[in-house]
């Protein structure tokens, strides 16, 4: 349990760092458009989580999901690419500073990585008890 506690604390620090980077990228240039990136990355795992239980019940031990699971994966990957592409597009058309673009991409990557790592660690712990 100590390892799990340490993981949670580490992940929360990384999450805070990611949000710090995103908010700094907004506040330093007083242009609050990069905040959308944070929203995007927070929303990214949502379709997967919603559609994960649609595919199969517990009796058909079919890993390969059907239509709804695929749709959830499709939307998730779309949102993730949107999160990376949005700051690049904004920086390309001089709406935000290139440095703000880099900072918000790094922050968004940290936030999404935290979410992924947290769910992976959680899943592993869950299967240990099975």
């Amino acid at each position: 349990m100590a390892a799990g506690l340490r993981t949670v604390i580490l992940l929360s620090f990384v999450l805070a760092l990611g949000f710090l980077l995103i908010i700094l990228s907004c506040a330093l240039w007083s242009n609050w458009l990069p905040l959308i990136v944070a929203l995007t990355f927070v929303l990214a795992p949502l379709p997967n989580a919603l559609f994960a239980h649609c595919g199969s019940d517990e009796f058909s031990s079919n890993y390969e999901g059907s239509g709804p699971v695929d749709l959830g994966r499709f939307i998730t990957s779309m949102i993730v690419v949107t999160g990376f592409a949005l700051p690049i597009v904004l920086a390309h058309s001089d709406v935000i500073d290139p440095k703000a673009c880099a900072m918000s991409i790094a922050g968004g990557g940290l936030v999404y990585g935290t979410i992924l790592a947290y769910s992976a660690a959680f899943k592993q712990e869950d299967s240990d008890y099975d």
């Binding site: 695929d70 994966r73 499709f74 939307i75 998730t76 990957s77 779309m78 949102i79 993730v80 690419v81 949107t82 592409a85």
Partner: peptide, 10 residues
Amino acid sequence: VYLAGALFAL
């Protein structure tokens, strides 16, 4: 499926 979604968004 992930790759297709990424290409679509791209």
